[in-house]
Amino acid sequence: MGKKLNIEMLSIKNLHVSIEGKDILKGINLDVKPGEVHAIMGPNGAGKSTLASVLAGRDLFNVTEGEVNFQGKDLLDMEPEDRAKEGIFLGFQYPIEIPGVSTVNFMKTAVNEHRKYKGLDPLSASDFLKLMREKKSLVEIDSKLTNRSVNEGFSGGEKKKNEIFQMAMLEPKLAVLDETDSGLDIDALRVVANGVNKLKTRDNATIVITHYQRLLDYIVPDVVHVLYDGRIVKTAGKELALELEEKGYDWIKEENGK
């Protein structure tokens, strides 16, 4: 068992990413083990969201160098849907509104795709609804939201809660939460953070991307990284987040010669 815990779940080596010829990520190295919570902090434009999108498989970005290994497989070689089924979950910074697609149908399709991938039969309608009920109460999301089209007309907080609800439904191995705290009032923030904490097990891992320390009062990270200008420039324990909160990002910029 001890041996299993030592195996990296995610291993990013020297990852270089560009978009339209512009380098965004310039050699990222990051290892995440099961059971860990990592926070990635950094000023706007550092490349945090790019990293999240690349892990989820968004094809707007060009990986020019490096490798990403997820549970022993080459992640970069997989379609977004296969990454999801392997256990990657991206909590979107800006969840997309999809009018006409009901949340129920969306989640049912997604859950059954995951089951198919694992060689399981699709859930019956009643089992599916039971699962929905369980997960809804877990993340304190209102039924009126799940009865509507995906994210349509949702407030910022409702959209983020819906992300956590989807995460609860899909039970990922690795959740990458991209600025999940942005635009949240303190109550919504607490709900979102509680959801993440309740879903945490020793077998899954979370990467929390944020540029405020506030969320980290609720989701306590094991490791904090600072991403600046496409590189991880600092890695430490949770106390680093507090230091950043106090001193801002200027000292990081100075240390890195800008």
């Binding site: 990454r83 999809i98 149908n105 899909l170």
Partner: peptide, 19 residues
Amino acid sequence: YLRARGIDEKEARQMLMFA
């Protein structure tokens, strides 16, 4: 967004057209 939840591209397109 749909694909990132595990729905394959063909099915995702179908869902959006239908919607």
